[in-house]
Design a protein around this nucleic acid. Structure first.
Lengths: 206, 206
DNA sequence: TTCAAAGTGTTAATAAAATAACACTGTTTA
DNA sequence: TAAACAGTGTTATTTTATTAACACTTTGAA
């Protein structure tokens, strides 16, 4: 399967999330236009995305929700699973960890790192917290490839570099600090302030 | 000024965030390619965005950082400021509040809402928490137009509806629940799981 | 059955976004 | 002070993403 565009991956993730909710609500079939409505996009977009991943419904009674969830899984999940570390287990790190933990079977948050002696060697939000000095060791030992970066700005850069040296292949950066990573490391940046400002702008402009 | 595309607004927010850091680091001028590098985009993109908002540097010695920060402010900020409420002050709500509070002079988080009697009528992360029943009243009284939705999924929909009835004009939805809002309300959805899954996908695929 | 109605997969067209190209203007150096 | 250089603003081009169009298939009703 050819590598999908980032936007498509985002939507696939959104489809699955909504399908899980839809299934939990007791629905077994869904039409493209219904799924589209949940994401505020068009039915064509949905069908086009599903075409891209080679999915087609046998019946014309809508898509089989379970089947579609599984198909999306075969595309965006890694078969053997992927391990995640939360770097910096302050307010945001804790929030993300407890929010995410257990939600996706193939993605496991297996470690947290922090410098605060109050936190180190304790289990926080269901995850063991290690001192930052042990990062390299633990990342290797636990085969962690993904890092969620939620540390104070001053440490963001050096700690991210260390994580990469230790073998991290993908970073989701929640800090306000711009990072630079080698080509073989995938970097996604998310800044809440930008989201808030965007809402504010469109509220202002109507 | 014509309404800008969402993507441009996001980048402008990113420019300002980076410029603030750049200024704090003691730099007063910045070239388009330097600013571009911080955001991992091209210099052309930067110049194009600035053209869109009608900014041009008098000198050819790079942009005046302070001036550019101000110009971006005149575009994306509301002159009289905008008030924000955090609806649901659990882990994530607290994290966002303490992260954001005071970072942008024109955007103020002025109230939190929650049902938990332990939280109600207390000041949490620097913001007073009110019971959800008082939401309509407070939103009106404090002229709150923006809501950050960080409540448990089961309450998301009814509470969002109530907030809109009370006069909210923009919602940033951090829950996994798909919302429907009237046309005059701006809705931005952010799902952390999607971000994490996106990173995971591109780590997997290389 | 058979005929509409509704839904799907796919190709074609459109729109939006990012990139390239380039003329112009200061800046620097010799 | 002139010639090379570097950086900017803007138009043109390309690429990417979205939407429209449509033939085909199933479903359901008459």
């Amino acid at each position: 399967m050819k590598k999908l565009p980032g936007k498509t991956v985002e939507r696939l993730s959104g489809y699955r999330r909504n399908l899980l909710g839809y299934l939990a609500a007791g629905n077994n079939y869904i039409y493209s236009h219904e799924l589209a409505a949940l994401l505020h996009i068009t039915a064509v977009q949905v069908r086009r995305d599903l075409m891209l991943i080679g999915y087609s419904s046998v019946q014309k009674k809508g898509y089989d929700v379970k089947e579609l969830i599984d198909t999306i899984g075969t595309i965006i999940d890694s078969e053997q699973g992927q391990n995640i570390a939360v770097i910096g287990i302050g307010n945001l790190g804790r929030a993300i960890t407890s929010y995410f933990k257990g939600k996706r079977s193939k993605l496991n948050i297996v470690a947290a790192f922090d410098n605060d002696p109050q936190k180190v060697n304790r289990v926080i939000a269901g995850v063991r917290c290690y001192p930052v000095e042990k990062m390299e060791h633990i990342i290797n030992e636990q085969n962690i490839t993904i890092a969620l970066l939620t540390i104070p700005p001053d440490f963001a850069r050096p700690v991210a570099d260390a994580a990469i040296r230790a073998g991290i292949k993908g970073i989701l950066n929640f800090t306000t600090v711009p990072l630079n990573v080698p080509l073989n490391v995938y970097l996604e940046e998310y800044d809440m302030i930008t989201s808030i400002e965007k809402v504010a702008y469109f509220v202002k402009e109507g």
